[in-house]
């Protein structure tokens, strides 16, 4: 039985297969409308979410399956003290596949060790978010036509930004990808990304706090939000939250074909005016998220068109 806990669980060939399937779904949606008929997806969201949960649910509905679950820890027996392990063993009696978001890092991995059905990590604390990464890869592929030979700049909270960690891990599989890491000192990438990915694979990368210079180099700019919920200290959040803001003035430094991505939700790190710029692709990302999750659900359930 396969789970998706970390983007590294997938090979480059499997990622390509998922992107190919997602692209085929986009072109031939009707052909996939009943492939998961009779199957149930449980969405166990112990932490709030708009896009990820709804895109999982929309994905399963569009595949002809059905959905059950909860959208906050308060609405589950976790509030009574039930463990993650007991929760997934219980839900496995009702559903064929589980998408889980949890504020604690490693909760989906722990769940997968005792689950009787496939587990998809839909985000675990500040650790990792592999289905957002699949969404990002599909979007980059559709916008750029390639996943290799490019410079990717990542900006904002690179310490707790789980989507950043998963994206760097995934892009490190492809040839000639350079990373520019733009963040305040306190929110630099954690050591397990620095040592185990960037240094271990001898990748080309540098850290900077100069957003304008980085914009001139980037083929893809990946903006992230400074996440209030990851700070134990509110004062630190308030000090760091407006470190980098992308506005129409800064967009002048970007290449004519730079792809601007953001996993959303945004607060104020991208000015709303940037939305009108054709290089802004974050709402296309949202739509792509549903299609790649459809492809992933099919793969883990072992169903085909």
């Amino acid at each position: 039985m396969r789970h998706l806990i970390d983007i590294k669980d997938l090979s480059v060939e499997e990622i390509k297969g998922l992107i190919d399937t997602a692209n085929d779904i986009i072109e031939n949606r009707a052909a996939y409308s009943e492939v998961c008929k009779g199957k149930k997806l449980a969405t166990l969201f112990f932490e709030p979410s708009t896009r990820t949960r709804l895109s999982f649910e929309a994905a399963m509905w569009e595949l002809g399956g059905s959905v059950l679950g909860f959208s906050s820890a308060d609405a589950s027996s976790t509030s009574k003290g039930e463990s993650v392990t007991d929760t997934v063993r219980t839900v496995g009696c009702y559903a064929d596949i589980i998408a889980m978001r949890h504020p604690k890092e490693g909760a989906p991995l722990l769940a997968s060790l005792s689950s009787t059905v496939p587990i998809i990590n839909a985000g675990d604390g500040g650790h990792s978010h592999p289905t957002q990464t699949l969404t990002d890869l599909l979007t980059i592929m559709r916008e750029k036509g390639r996943l290799d030979n490019m410079t990717v700049a990542l900006c904002g909270d690179l310490k707790f930004g789980r989507t950043v960690h998963s994206l760097i891990s995934a892009m490190s599989f492809y040839d000639n990808v350079k990373f520019i890491l733009i963040s305040p000192e306190e929110l630099k990438v954690p050591n397990y990304i620095r040592q185990d990915v960037l240094e271990k694979k001898n990748l080309e990368w540098y850290e900077t706090d100069n957003m304008e210079n980085a914009l001139g180099e980037a083929d893809v700019l990946y903006m992230t939000r400074v996440q209030r919920e990851r700070f134990f200290n509110e004062a630190d959040y308030l000090r760091l939250k407006d470190s980098f803001i992308l506005d129409t003035e800064k967009m002048k430094y970007a290449k004519p074909d730079t792809t601007i991505l953001h996993p959303l939700p945004r607060v104020n790190e991208i000015s709303v005016k940037v939305d009108e710029d054709p290089r802004a692709c974050y709402f296309k990302q949202v739509e792509n998220g549903k299609f790649i999750r459809m492809a992933l659900i099919m793969m883990l359930l072992g169903v085909t068109k």
Partner: peptide
């Protein structure tokens, strides 16, 4: 995770 540096990481959160 690194034999030469002797680094061990938690399998759940990857902290050193």
């Amino acid at each position: 995770t690194s034999e030469e540096k002797g680094i061990y990481r938690c399998i759940y959160c990857e902290s050193e």
